[in-house]
Design a protein around this nucleic acid. Structure first.
Lengths: 343, 343
DNA sequence: ATGGTCTATGTAAAGGTTTACATAGCTTCT
DNA sequence: AGAAGCTATGTAAACCTTTACATAGACCAT
């Protein structure tokens, strides 16, 4: 009973007085097995405490029940909630989650490829804007994969996330409604699709409001706190300043607020700031950040569901699932107080 | 070359013109194989792009190269940094990380046990103060396990974390040095060892400073934001108030600050507050929280190293590895301004 | 009664690896 | 020269499943 070695299907078969094939069938295709036999088998299973050896099963089946989740940085404040969604959905379907982080190091990425090549993972969730494996040649060898949170720039991989354009539009519309006209967009990027789309929302909103190109300011950034701070430095060397900052994500917004704070400005009195993502700390900042919420758990759930579908069907399925982003109004936006011209 | 089915050891053997046994040996015990043969094999491996099928290997070896990490809540702000440490160390030794979260549901915990029983995971990292599997009967069947961040209350499992007593002592000593005498401890718990120890540090510090028991206030809590807020509610029904709050962790401190803020008090002018853990948002609160830093990545690294050692040796090894906690001084502590008596 | 169909079960192969045991060729010692 | 000991390699079993194929019995229709 409490043997040292775990029970095998053979032990169960012996006790139930059937063949191992019948045991396997009783477990996986119960309708193919007589009621009486099924009962004997389940009793034997209970007696032995048998659990299927996943290794043997995966070997025989040629596929594992693990999904590899690769992120550039596990510490990303968006990561954990997405993970919750992914994990719940996976577990509900008998899959487990394997995680890895590349720290933007292609070498690292390749190491994780081994999990895939060695059949340890059946599918791949990519939490990154760019395929983390050196040469794209790999793409051909990639197992069923789904991008999550950020569209995968160079992979042609189905993707589940938020409608970035719509989200950005909500942010810019709020600022416009408050009376802002000169609004800077902080964090443009040519290689990150999500950022490009957010900028598109920004432009679309200004277009719709009839705000001319001369009032638009766009600065690049990579979405880090530091990039936000840096953007402020750059901006203050200009002739004219905006009255509001629409940031490509919350991290950037934090950097912007730090930069502004360091120069003695008050938010939202002197400048308004918006973020994107609604990371956990957004609510705790002072002022609390007005931002666009990503339904992270939902994103994870949908992404995993899509991946599992891919695994069983093999069909390419839809390319993008876009969830609705919500505006979260807190305290970092107010009406513009004065015009900032030459200082 | 770019075959659809991945290359097996047999393919390699055929090309290298040796037996599969030799290939296996060339990979895993290179010194047992002649130089010339080894070369032929490695060339064949390069040609075929062969990678060992981990399933077959684990099946044969009777153990996997996966470590299961179980936490009650993946979203815990302490989790991700620990995970980074765990993952780095694991990967460096050829292990992968499987994650699960129980949400304090024993049923869930049991589901994860299956990963262990089915040989899918060789070891277990527990990020929880209490064994997440229903009956402790399981303990006997548990694989090599290591508790991390918080000592495991009921498991008798080796543990890697921070010296809670020393950390708490640093916090209480700071408050005492600022002139506080009446200091409340928020978040005591009989079932969470870490919390008990932090309270011990609190008591020891007051003892050493000669502060009598009549000036001590201890309130229970479970380490959530809500529990901190609730403690404030309770406390304000008392005759006398403390001048400082030493909180069992940062979440509790956040709750305390919210509660105090809601009543119109200013921190640190009216009350001082300390936390424990130094979660990422601690620095972004206003005022920024003075707290005790956990070297999270290091904790993760050491825990995984210990587990891997256990896996190879099978020795019980040392029971606890305690890292040094650091005091992080920010803006939530100041000298007491006045005595709070009857209100 | 014969043949056919269907259902429940058993037999055995296959999946890719590691490794105990066997073997064969050398080297070394007496 | 023969025995003994090494070294490098090969053969084949074992790890635990799943499932194609085979079989046997029951039922039904003719």
């Amino acid at each position: 009973m409490s043997n040292s070695t775990p029970a095998t299907i053979e032990d169960v078969a012996r006790i139930a007085e059937v063949s191992i094939a019948t045991v396997s069938r009783a477990i996986h295709m119960p309708e193919k097995v007589a009621n009486s036999t099924r009962l004997k088998v389940s009793q034997a299973i209970a007696m032995t405490g048998y659990t299927t050896n996943a290794m043997a099963r995966s070997l025989r089946l040629g596929r594992s029940n693990m999904i590899l989740v690769v992120a550039p940085d596990i510490g990303d404040p968006n990561f954990s909630n997405i993970l919750v969604g992914l994990e719940n959905e996976a577990r509900a379907h008998g899959y487990g989650i394997l995680i890895g982080h590349t720290q933007n190091d292609a070498q690292r990425g390749l190491e994780y490829l081994k999990f895939l090549n060695s059949n340890q993972a059946a599918g791949l969730i990519l939490f990154t804007g760019i395929l983390p494996f050196g040469h794209q040649t790999m793409t051909a060898r990639l197992p069923p994969s789904v991008g999550v949170f950020e569209p995968v720039f160079n992979g042609g991989i189905p993707y589940v996330g938020v409608d970035d354009i719509e989200g950005a539009r909500k942010a810019i519309d709020l600022l416009l409604a408050e009376g802002h006209r000169k609004i800077a967009f902080i964090g443009d990027s040519r290689t990150r699709l999500a950022y490009t789309r957010r900028r598109m929302g920004y432009e679309a909103g200004l277009d719709a409001a009839g705000v001319g190109a001369d009032l638009r300011i766009v600065l690049e950034g990579d979405g880090t706190i530091e990039s936000g701070r840096l953007a402020i430095e750059q901006l203050f060397m200009r002739d004219t300043l905006p009255t509001a900052f629409m940031c490509v994500n919350d991290q950037t917004a934090i950097g912007v607020m730090i930069g502004l704070g360091a120069r003695g400005y008050d938010i939202p009195r002197d400048f308004s700031v918006t973020g994107f993502d609604d990371v956990p700390q957004a609510a705790f900042m002072s002022p609390a950040l007005t931002t666009i919420r990503q339904p992270r758990t939902m994103i994870g759930k949908h992404a995993m569901a899509l991946l599992l579908e891919l695994l069983s069907d093999g069909q390419p399925a839809e390319t993008e699932i876009l969830l609705r982003p919500d505006l979260v109004v807190r305290n970092s936006v107010a009406a513009p107080s004065r015009e900032w011209t030459k200082r």
